[in-house]
Design a binder for these strands. Structure first.
Length: 451
DNA sequence: ATAGGGTTAG
């Protein structure tokens, strides 16, 4: 029912014959996307009676995540045309995130200033968002500067925000920069276990386990107690760096020292051995885990199923999947994605499709990864009809095609795996379909790819 | 949004 309504809103001519949308974020997002230029009087009329709440606004913003300019238009529209509604801090944070991802810094800063004038922020979270954008777009120095200047925007630095900026730098692989800042300011902020864990994890992320061990040692020397998170981080680091023997010894040491090793420890080892192709040891550790009374989580099963797909056989992965279901676990979107990928990788497309149907029947919505991965496999095998079928299905559901989807489809046009004739026919079908869809999308695709 | 485990293929 909901889907039918969404579809009718999507396919109606832009701006014409639109009924007021209910407080349904999916319907509102589709309505916004149906406007090719700016939101106009028609939209004002359509949303006059909509009961706006921060939750509703946030849902709409999240649905428009891959259509950033539209999302910002919507945010500003509410600010300007519904004067009785005032945005919540969480909505500002989302809008700031979107503007920062689009690198529209004047908008980022005007939103920050507006937050301040409304006395609802900016909060440390707001700064974390902006810093993360700076760090991941090659501007770690601007991220650091932002942290150092936070207080000028009414937001004082504390240990938590210090730990956050270090984590942001580490997660975007700017570990040297994080380490520098850490050494300069650890005294001023009284670095704690979390601070050290962030730095240990940073070195592990770039596979520099000797540096991670050095920080671990330093931590102990300074009287900061490592905890299970520290050890699990280090263990994961060894696996990531391909140091399987060291990982195993570290794991044994953890047990010898009576660490209360937990589900995260075991999942790390199951995954680590599996990725290294040591399926037998993966099984042994999984059995040991159950023997020791540590309950596997859905993540443990996901790790196991994934490595069975990659390093063993997809049939064994299916067995493990059925076992987890039998034991009462509820597979999540990751579980399905991993197994569907395994089936597709093995060329078992129809079984992959069946599993997708099953996930939907179970109420687990396919996401971008599900669709994009399936479309990629179909495109690579010149299964044009199948790829387009999924693309169409995306367009009518809650998970709209994003830029990656278009990229996958377009690169699919250039794949040559079958006879030249098939490729030409496939290309024509793709080109025709993409042009048709782009005309519905208001020219976004045309501008992006100059088709 | 102060820290640790599970999602692409190349």
């Amino acid at each position: 029912m909901k889907r039918l309504l969404s579809k009718s809103l999507c396919t109606s001519a832009a701006g014409a014959n639109l009924k007021p949308p209910p407080a349904d974020p999916a319907a509102i997002a589709k309505l916004i996307l149906s406007f090719h230029q700016t939101l106009d009087d028609q939209f004002i009329l359509s949303t006059k009676t909509t009961p706006w709440t921060p939750n509703l606004v946030n849902s709409v913003l999240k649905r428009l995540w891959n259509h950033g300019p539209k999302a910002l238009q919507f945010f500003h529209f509410l600010d300007n045309h519904h004067r009785e509604y005032v945005h919540d801090a969480s909505s500002f944070d989302l809008a700031i995130d979107i503007a920062a991802r689009l690198h529209i810094h004047p908008t980022v800063w005007s939103l920050i200033h507006r937050m301040r004038s409304l006395r609802i922020g900016p909060s440390p979270k707001t700064f974390a968002i902006v810093a993360e954008r700076y760090a991941s777009s090659g501007k770690p120095d601007k991220a650091v500067k932002l942290f150092l200047n936070m207080h000028e925007h009414g937001c004082f630095q504390d240990l938590a925000s210090f730990n956050t900026i270090l984590d942001v730098l580490c997660k975007s692989k700017r570990v040297e920069k994080a380490y520098e800042l850490f050494r300069a300011l650890r005294g001023r902020f009284s670095a704690d276990t979390v601070t050290y864990n962030v730095i240990v994890n940073g070195w592990c992320l770039i596979k520099r386990t000797p540096k991670a061990l050095e920080v671990l040692k330093e931590m102990v020397d300074r009287g900061i107690n490592p905890n299970l998170t520290t050890y699990n981080t280090m263990l994961q680091g060894f696996f990531r760096a391909g140091q399987i023997r060291q990982a195993w010894e570290f794991f044994l040491e953890m047990k010898k020292r009576n660490c209360e090793i937990d589900v995260v420890t075991y999942t790390t080892v199951v995954h680590g051995f599996g990725v290294a192709g040591e399926i037998k040891r993966t099984r042994n550790v999984f059995d040991e885990m159950i023997r020791e009374g540590v309950l596997p989580s859905v993540a443990t099963y996901n790790a196991f199923i994934q490595v069975l797909c990659k390093k063993d056989s997809v049939e064994n992965a299916v067995v493990m999947f059925e076992e987890m279901v039998r034991k009462g676990y509820e597979p999540n979107v990751t579980t399905y994605n991993v197994l569907i990928r395994g089936l597709f990788h093995a060329g078992k497309f129809s079984r992959g499709e069946e599993l997708m149907q099953r996930m939907e029947n179970e109420g687990c919505e396919p996401n971008f990864q599900t669709y994009n991965m399936m479309i990629r496999y179909y495109s690579e095998c010149s299964e044009v009809e199948k790829a387009l079928g999924l693309f169409e299905k995306m367009g009518t559901g809650d998970c709209l095609p994003n830029l990656d989807t278009y990229n996958i489809l377009i690169s699919g046009m250039f794949v040559r795996k079958r006879s030249e004739d098939m490729v030409v026919a496939g290309n024509q079908a793709f080109a025709k379909e993409i042009l048709r869809l782009q005309s519905k999308s208001g020219g976004r695709l045309l501008r992006k790819f100059r088709l």
